[in-house]
Amino acid sequence: MNLRQTLFNKNLPVHEQLVFCLLLTAVGGFFDAYTFVNCDGIFANAQTGNLIFVGIDLIEGNIPEVIHYSVSIFSFVIGVLVSKVIETKYKELSIFTHIYMLLIVQICALLLIIFKHSFFEIDIRPIVISFICAIQFDGFRKVNNLVFASVFCTGNLRSMSEHLYKYVVLKKKESKTPLLIYSTVIGVFLSGVLLGAAMSKFFLHKAILVPLFIICINLLFVMAIHNKFASKKL
């Protein structure tokens, strides 16, 4: 399979297209760097890291810091629940409508914190962004028929290592494409982190415009595929 077929595989649903998932992954990496730099060390995606901080601060008796990291964890849980409500309550809707709903929820949430990132002196950015990441993680789980995560890389790294072993040691040629896909996903996530860290240091809160722009591009991509699909049915 060549690069073009891998990026745009007409046999796959739009939310499993590599180009769509790479844009999600860039946003996932950006969010973690953004909240870590701008929100006092909170991770938007890596809730394992936030749980570690909660545990350490509990031992040290630092309750304000426990609350500081816990809000992101609870917001992530709520995001997953909202994603499940959308998935089950509106399961009769088309896949395109489902994707539109998930992307538009993310865009609206980002617009909220662009115009008002704190209420009653409470920084709502890590709360909202963790919510967005949970929706993204739960709603988009596959790329090119492969299980993947767009908001953190532990699972992707394990899968890449597995296919590296199969391709190099066991000489299984069918592992070449998954190896390249997982490697690309990890590279794009790191690029998102680098972009998020750099933009956050230079532009602070305004850096959040970057993931908003990327998600809008993804929405336009889905609309283009949807229109093409609809025209073929006529």
Rank of each mutant, 00 (worst) to 15 (best):
S191V: 07
I129P: 03
I42Q: 12
S161L: 09
K89W: 11
I124D: 00
K89C: 10
K172Q: 15
M101C: 14
V168T: 06
S183P: 09
I124H: 01
V188R: 05
F53R: 09
N2V: 09
Y165G: 06
G192D: 07
A198T: 13
T184Y: 04
F76W: 09
I181L: 05
I67E: 10
L51M: 15
G196F: 08
I52G: 00
L190N: 02
A224G: 06
V188N: 02
T88C: 05
L157K: 08
A224M: 09
G49T: 04
L22G: 07
L170F: 02
F137I: 01
F213M: 15
D57Q: 09
Q17K: 14
F152K: 04
L212I: 07
R4M: 12
T35E: 06
S130N: 02
V82C: 13
A230Y: 08
L204Y: 11
S72I: 10
I114V: 13
M160W: 05
A134T: 02
L18S: 09
C133W: 05
G79V: 08
A207Y: 00
C216A: 14
L209T: 12
N62Y: 11
L111F: 05
S200L: 13
G29C: 00
K116F: 04
V71N: 01
H15I: 07
G79H: 05
M1F: 07
V54S: 00
Y90A: 09
F43C: 01
F189V: 03
I208S: 07
S161A: 15
C153V: 15
Q5C: 05
K166A: 13
S183N: 08
I42T: 06
V188D: 03
F119A: 03
A197D: 10
L194M: 14
S191P: 02
H15R: 14
I181W: 08
I215Q: 00
S83I: 02
I132G: 01
I99K: 08
F202E: 13
L103D: 05
I215F: 05
K201M: 11
L146T: 10
V82M: 09
F36M: 12
S175Q: 04
S231Q: 10
L110C: 09
I52H: 01
A109R: 04
I186V: 13
T97L: 10
K232V: 07
T6S: 12
I67G: 07
S231K: 13
H15V: 12
I95E: 10
L12M: 11
E174Y: 09
R141N: 06
M101T: 14
F36A: 13
M199S: 13
F8S: 00
K10Y: 11
I132M: 03
V193N: 06
F20W: 13
C21Q: 13
Q47Y: 00
L212Y: 04
M160F: 14
A109C: 14
A44W: 03
V54M: 02
Y69W: 04
V185D: 04
P126G: 01
F30G: 02
C153R: 06
C133D: 00
H205E: 14
I107G: 11
G29I: 01
P178Y: 07
I135K: 00
C21I: 10
V37Y: 02
I225V: 14
V151P: 02
F119Q: 07
S150L: 03
H226V: 05
L234Q: 11
K201N: 09
A26L: 15
Y90L: 15
V14I: 13
L112H: 03
I214K: 03
R141C: 10
